[in-house]
């Protein structure tokens, strides 16, 4: 995510328009992460909108403007986890049809459906780690900070998840 650090600074100083500008810069990525983690648009929209509100209220406490992207991603990951915790047990699935409908004009739909099906076999936390790493480009260390987990835990989960995906996709 590319974020205007100057706008973040102005947002911290109380400029609402600047906050909305930096939010707009990160919103598509936030939505993507939430959607692939939670598996449906309704919950993803809930998680992102709650993230907006919490970030709005908390940005004055952000110490380092250059860390805005990972900071707001942490807020989102916490929101996603709370959503997951609210699910009746075993609600784990991705609404593949719904997501396919969002991207129907791009790329190879067969490939995408295969990957979504494989992703559907993962637990939500596993999806979150993979999405943050592969689609968002965060390092294991950064993901550990975002999720509040030990780095070793994230590393082992990441590699186990890739192994699972390899078996599903092969």
């Amino acid at each position: 995510m590319n974020v205007d650090v100057g706008a973040v600074r102005r947002a911290k100083e109380g400029n609402i328009e600047s906050f909305e500008m930096v939010y707009a810069q990160v919103a598509p990525d936030l939505y993507k992460v939430a959607l692939y983690t939670l598996g449906n648009t309704h919950d993803a929209e809930d998680a992102v909108s709650e993230t907006f509100l919490e970030a709005f209220k908390g940005i004055k406490n952000l110490r380092d403007e250059t860390k805005f992207a990972s900071w707001i991603m942490k807020i989102l990951s916490i929101r996603c986890k709370r959503k997951i915790g609210q699910y009746i047990k075993d609600k784990n699935s991705i609404d593949i049809d719904e997501i396919m409908g969002l991207t129907s004009t791009e790329g190879d739909p067969t490939q995408r459906a295969e990957v979504l099906t494989a992703l559907n076999e993962l637990k939500q936390e596993e999806r979150l780690i993979v999405v943050l790493s592969v689609l968002q480009g965060y390092t294991i260390r950064e993901i550990a900070a975002i999720l509040g987990c030990p780095q070793g835990t994230v590393s082992s989960k990441f590699h186990r998840t890739l192994k699972k995906l390899k078996e599903k996709l092969s």
Binding site: A24, T41, F52, I99, T103, G107, V115, V134, L135
Partner: peptide, 16 residues
Amino acid sequence: LQVLNTDLGLPKSLSA
């Protein structure tokens, strides 16, 4: 996995 890295569009409800 990069096939998922497409533009999903942002729902209007999530606009600033």
